[in-house]
Design a binder for these strands. Structure first.
Lengths: 254, 254
DNA sequence: GTATACCTTTACGCAACGTCAAGGTCAATC
DNA sequence: GATTGACCTTGACGTTGCGTAAAGGTATAC
């Protein structure tokens, strides 16, 4: 059986242009060229094309594929292992990206109702950026990728009701926190209620709540100036107050 | 504070070329141009650049970023949600890729010892390709992505010992199968032992063994000609024989 | 004989810069 | 005041894997 570019293209599910390109870069040459200049492919080329497409589906670059399919003694398995490493790295990055985007969505939506949108537009970006860069890494190192990924799952599966609940909780946290702050005692009932609400809010984003993580996050609120700025915006000292309340709430020693 | 291209680049961790490019595409124009033609950036540009880089880290294209940061009433949250969908799709594809690559590695390595490498080089590719294309899809549809992904986990965590065990098992399967075939009865002890070994081999790739899946796979060995060709290579009829043995082994009705 | 479906080569376009190249500018040092 | 070295400018080509015309020749069916 002999094929012209289009026929072979249809057979393999690729365009004629692709075949011409493969010819151009010496990846797949036609078996012969007809008197009128047509590219004619035979069975051997069909087979080879299948190999090429197989590797291409794995995301390997054409140059590497060329080495794999032309080099007679080339170690295909080694190439695959190397490629696998690259893919795993890529996925790690992608997971991080998704985490960031999802948290960004949650945070912006959750906080849009809490504060003046316009005013915070620029600030929010920076806050979230730093939050994610620093805090995302720390959490991942501490609790492993799995925890984070499960957390992503949770976010992904959030319904509209969940979202409303999160927003409501976020508002309640700020309100309660503000009230407790006027009181002044992080051990007071109202401050502990704020800490508890904060925990509830948190569990919407973390699949596994732990006292240590909660306390750690509270400390981060103080250490990271932009985070701190967010909480302190209405009342300076609120970030520290929340941290103290959470410390007491979680029974975490200072 | 005022910055030239390189200074701002250092501050933000990007190249001067990138800044010139952003100028060129009207994504970030300098505050002013000095008498000698130097680009001079101010605080507003620094802030804007941070926004740009934030979105860029999320993998959003520069054109979209332009819309986000220039459009005054642009719905950033909506853009993020859409972008999230894209990322999730991307990750799905990537997971599939990784699955394929890993299975390919396992299969090629596992079978390299079973047969003449040279001879099968081209054939293997086709077999695996079809196997993956057809069978990967079916399994995914039937058992869901999670099963497959957990299976990936398993493969990812394979140690050298695991690998040797897999290779050993693969050899044992073929040897036992060949012996059983000479016997001729798929219900015989030896044939059932082959089916059992095959199951053991399988569980290295599937996290959740099920009789249905095992039987289904056995049937596929017969239906798919290339798969069939692989098993039948030494002894025609072996694929059917294995299927019959597995059917009996799993108690699956014909 | 002609319609039309196919083939050819040539070449620009895409995303986001990296990387020379050729030449002007700034600040400090001799 | 001249030189030096670090910096700046624009221009333009290269990267990857093709898509998409454009301009023109060919095979096949009616």
């Amino acid at each position: 059986m002999e094929y012209t570019v289009q026929k072979l293209g249809r057979l393999a599910g690729i365009s004629a242009r692709t075949l011409r390109y493969y010819d151009e870069i010496d990846l797949l040459k036609p078996a012969r060229v007809s008197s009128s200049g047509y590219r004619i492919y035979g069975q051997a080329e069909v087979d080879r094309l299948q190999q090429i497409l197989f590797y291409r589906e794995l995301g390997i670059g054409l140059e590497s594929i060329k080495k794999i399919v032309t080099g007679p003694s080339f170690d295909g398995a080694k190439a695959l292992r190397e490629h696998r490493e690259q893919l795993l790295d890529k996925r790690k990055q992608l997971d991080l990206l998704i985490t960031n985007v999802e948290k960004t969505i949650a945070l912006t939506e959750g906080r849009m109702t809490m504060t003046d949108k316009e005013k915070f537009e620029g600030f929010k970006q920076k806050m979230i950026e730093d939050n994610e860069k620093k805090y995302g890494k720390e959490i991942r190192e501490k609790y492993g990728d799995d925890t984070i990924n499960r957390s992503n799952e949770k976010l992904r599966n959030m319904t509209r009701e969940d979202h409303e609940e999160v927003t409501r909780l976020a508002n309640e946290v700020t309100a309660t926190l503000a009230e407790a702050f006027r009181n002044g005692d992080p051990a007071s009932d109202i401050a502990q209620k704020a800490a508890d609400l904060h925990k509830q809010w948190l569990t919407y984003f973390w699949s596994q709540y732990s006292k240590e993580a909660h306390a750690g996050l509270a400390q981060m609120y103080v250490d990271d100036e932009r985070f701190k700025a967010y909480y302190d915006e209405k009342q300076p000292g609120t970030a520290e107050f929340l941290r103290d309340a959470v410390y007491i709430y979680t029974g975490y020693k200072k």
